[in-house]
Amino acid sequence: MMRVWAWGALLFGCMYFALPLIGMTEFSLSMRRGEYSFDAYRVVLADPRFQATFAYSVVMALVTIAFGVLLVVPTAYWVRLKLPKARPWVEFITLLPLVIPAIVVVFGYIRLYNTSSVLPLTGSVMGTNLLLMFGYATLALPYMYRSVDTGLRTIDVATLTEAAQSLGAGWVTILGRVILPNVLASVLSGAFLTFAIVIGEFTMAALLDRPAFGPYMQILGANRAYEPAALAVIAFGITWACMGLIGLVNRFSRHTQAKR
């Protein structure tokens, strides 16, 4: 009897998640009356605005990842090596973006960096892009920090550092040749999560008025019927591809296969 209920609960759970997705996918394929087709996808993919906004978001995602790695890897490493007592505080700070809504962050940015401020970043396109990148990095911080910190936990940071030092290595060499390669799988997990966040982000891009993929999805959703569904399926596909890549990277990183 218990078994029937368990299966029932599982089935309900699956339907809860799957039905909207199936419905949405089915709807996105129904642009042509009476038969399934990829017309909605064709329209979306051929739209120059799609190409432009998607390319913009991809570039922003890559820049955000690069900035995030350069910020988080040395920080997490240093905290583990020299400031273990500060770890709870640093973890708390990195979790803040989860509880402070993006809209609050972006309003704060606009107040601090508007054209009449000391640092008028919103006064130029490049400055605004930079601001948006910082915003994205903040949003991705909890995920990036956690992944990197988990990666660092699997290696003996202190002893590896000392071994490298005794062989003549300076900090840059230690970070670049010893620490980063050993946490690469974790860094890539963080990178893919960052990518997924940046591609779908709406609030910051919209309020900073940048031509990103999120606002484009919103505009399309407000004006068209089938295309937004196709776009949502594409966005889902990208997120899932990112998740799949995380798994793949973890499986194929050679030197982490063995238990230490």
């Binding site: 290696i155 003996d156 002893t159 590896l160 000392e162 071994a163 490298a164 030092q165 005794s166 062989l167 003549g168 290595a169 300076g170 040749r177 010893v178 390669p181 050993n182 690469l184 030197h255 982490t256 230490r260």
Partner: peptide
């Protein structure tokens, strides 16, 4: 890193990568 000293650790400390 400037002392020109070789060190061997109890935990081997080989670079796993």
């Amino acid at each position: 890193n400037r002392r020109n000293i070789g060190m061997v650790f109890q935990s081997y400390a080989l670079f796993p990568n």
